[in-house]
Design a protein around this nucleic acid. Structure first.
Lengths: 238, 238
DNA sequence: TCAAAAGTGTTTCCCCTACACCCATGG
DNA sequence: CCATGGGTGTAGGGGAAACACTTTTGA
């Protein structure tokens, strides 16, 4: 790399301008019946003391996806997450210090893992309810909103929602996850009908008694990966 | 910017590694009843002589969106297009010369404008039918496929398809556009019914006689921008 | 026996689909 | 008058939505 921000890795034979490339990750989980994002407190200017998404610069020896995963792990010690690229923010003025292009991601972990990380969590990292966000650094509010919109869409025709649940879960848990993501109540009978109609849920023949009520039947979702469930919208009509 | 690819525009107080950031644009149009992408012939290694998407490096004084638009205009002299960011490709080995992160876009122009550009076109730029692509440089085949998928999706619930047509058009033209994008025949009566049900088409009360057949009624789509048409899928059930 | 959540079917309505013939024009 | 695309309606089926009561358990 030469002086003045030009690198010798051109397309053609011209010199290629270099930019600082960062990743920012909106990590979602469900806690206490609300959808939450992980935020970290900035220790250095600009926006010192403000909350921001976990993130940092992409290194020269890692792919952008790897950088997103690394940043997440440094902040949370969470290993298994669903991580998906969202959008690349490339406005000139988005970082007061100069030109930083940010590739944003969103990620999803289930309750247990997020609680573990809450225990081991680095000082200054905290879960916030998505509808009660503090002021955020940079354009991170925009990123959270884009991530939420994407998640709300994807929940309709993919199996992302299962990423928010433990391996074995009751249908009512699943419904609550959908309700929390979509921000609306769903009809219990229709919800169960549709979910069971998918033919993807495995009945574990186990039950879980939780308090003084009828025990819930536990199901498992056999695919570890996030898959397309249907062509049509599943819960909220598209 | 310092030596060895590190810049002084950090997040925190650490040095930020710099990367070469490029944009690549898949520009679509309809010509001769087929969906086409604009490709340019590479004049320099690597992939010298191979076809690739129009693109190039992002400059320090422009946003990433601006870079995409600029590259498109340098190649085509087209001014008005619908341009949408697609995905950021950040694998380490995607460019044989080293680390280049590419922010990909897709764009859509209507027939007339694309023909104008075909006339004024820079040597070595050519429209290719999307199902008859030559070997492409870098991961550009992947980008074209991602763009196509996005376009096929968006056509269902937004007004992108109108970007492929002139201001005044017959319903049969519109249907042909949908068919060409989706790669399937559609029922004429159902198509017209749905389009007119949207309540978005303005009847211009003009007709166009084209050959020895009944003249077609011309419609206009009043929104210049691409908008959401419906929650549910419009043409192909979602 | 009661509180609290689990579990279970049916009817209605609307939208999507399939499908075939007449119309207006230029040659 | 004929070839070519323009233009039109309806019936049937399937999926979505609305809706209320019984079951099981622990306290």
């Amino acid at each position: 790399m030469g002086p003045n921000g030009y690198t010798k890795e051109p397309r053609g034979n011209r010199l290629a301008p270099a930019s600082a490339v960062a990743v920012d990750v909106a990590l979602f989980t469900i806690q206490d019946a609300s959808l939450r994002v992980l935020l970290v407190k900035r220790g250095a200017p600009p926006f010192r003391g403000a909350w921001s998404l976990p993130g940092g610069f992409v290194r020269r020896d890692e792919s952008v996806d790897e950088a997103a995963l690394r940043e997440l792990q440094e902040e949370t010690s969470i290993r298994t997450v669903y991580l998906e690229q969202l959008y690349t923010f490339g406005e000139l003025d988005r970082d007061p210090r100069g030109r930083v292009i940010s590739v944003s991601y969103y990620a999803v972990v289930h309750q247990e893992r997020s609680r573990i990380s809450a225990g081991q969590q680095i000082a200054g990292a905290k879960w916030f309810a998505v509808h009660r966000l503090p002021a955020l650094a940079f354009d991170h509010r925009e990123i959270v909103h884009a991530a939420l919109e994407r998640l709300r869409n994807k929940v309709n025709y993919t199996s992302v929602a299962f990423q928010l649940l433990p391996k074995k879960f009751a249908l009512s848990e699943l419904q609550r996850a959908y309700e929390v993501i979509l921000g609306q109540r769903l009809d219990k009978r229709n919800f169960r009908k549709k979910m069971l109609q998918l033919g993807m849920l495995r009945d574990t023949h186990e039950q879980r008694a939780e308090g003084r009520q009828r025990p819930a039947r536990l199901y498992a979702f056999p695919e570890a990966r996030v898959i397309k469930l249907q062509e049509k919208g599943i819960i909220v009509p598209f």
